[in-house]
């Protein structure tokens, strides 16, 4: 049996979202059908207004509704350190620490030739300019510890080092507060590899 066209259309659209498979898409669609018209319109409205007034920060490419984002305009932050991340939501992850008081730069992806992403597809030009203009002591490469994230970090390091800034890479290893006993072997092996002197 086929669903009526509007329902099928919604299911098809939902399935294109990350993390949503056919079953979830169907469940969400029928959940909305059971709800009130206002609920559905509120959701529809938020989705259709999503793009209004949203843009990328002129300086760091974070998502913002102003010319520059909150982190770039905050006078309490230091320009001397830039933390480079792959995606806008990675900023939130670092911000939750409330320990980092520098600026950010968002690449909007990582090098992945298999998906057609080369250097030109990443938003790295602004970062190079910021470092070239001076006043940056350290660039922290906080791309993911994946094959693609590592390649991106290696590529940026190669571009940034000649500009005189210190380039660092975030550490990888055992999750803090967890027992060593419960960490998986690969993580522990990585942690051993990245050990440091006391």
């Amino acid at each position: 049996m086929d669903y009526p066209a509007p329902v099928q259309k919604l299911i098809d659209e939902l399935r294109r979202l990350p993390g949503i498979g056919p079953k979830s898409a169907q469940r969400i669609a029928f959940h909305l059908l059971r709800g009130t018209r206002e609920d559905a319109e509120r959701l529809g409205g938020s989705i259709s207004r999503l793009m209004d007034g949203i843009r990328l920060c002129r300086i760091c490419n974070a998502i913002t509704d102003a010319e520059t984002c909150a982190q770039c305009t905050d006078p309490g932050r230091s320009d001397r350190t830039i933390c480079v991340v792959e995606e806008p939501h990675d900023i939130l992850a670092v911000e939750r620490t409330r320990d980092f008081k520098g600026r950010y730069h968002v690449l909007h992806g990582a090098l992945s030739p298999l998906q057609g992403i080369g250097p030109d597809e990443l938003k790295a030009h602004g970062l190079i300019e910021r470092v070239r203009l001076g006043g940056v002591d350290e660039v922290i490469l906080a791309t993911s510890p994946t094959v693609e994230g590592e390649a991106t970090a290696a590529w940026l390091a190669r571009l940034l080092k000649p500009l005189g800034a210190r380039v660092t890479r975030i550490a990888m290893g055992v999750p803090v507060g967890s027992d060593l006993e419960w960490s998986d072997e690969v993580t522990i092996a990585k942690a051993l590899e990245g050990r440091r002197d006391y």
Binding site: S112, G118, A154
Partner: peptide, 29 residues
């Protein structure tokens, strides 16, 4: 990891060697 690096590097070579240096570094590492 190495197999993934080779696949990515081959894709880079396939597309005119854009950004190949990063994949050279990973391949060697």
């Amino acid at each position: 990891e190495y197999e993934r690096v080779v696949r990515q590097r081959n894709a880079a070579l396939e597309s005119g060697a854009r950004g190949l240096e990063a994949w050279d570094e990973r391949l060697v590492e």
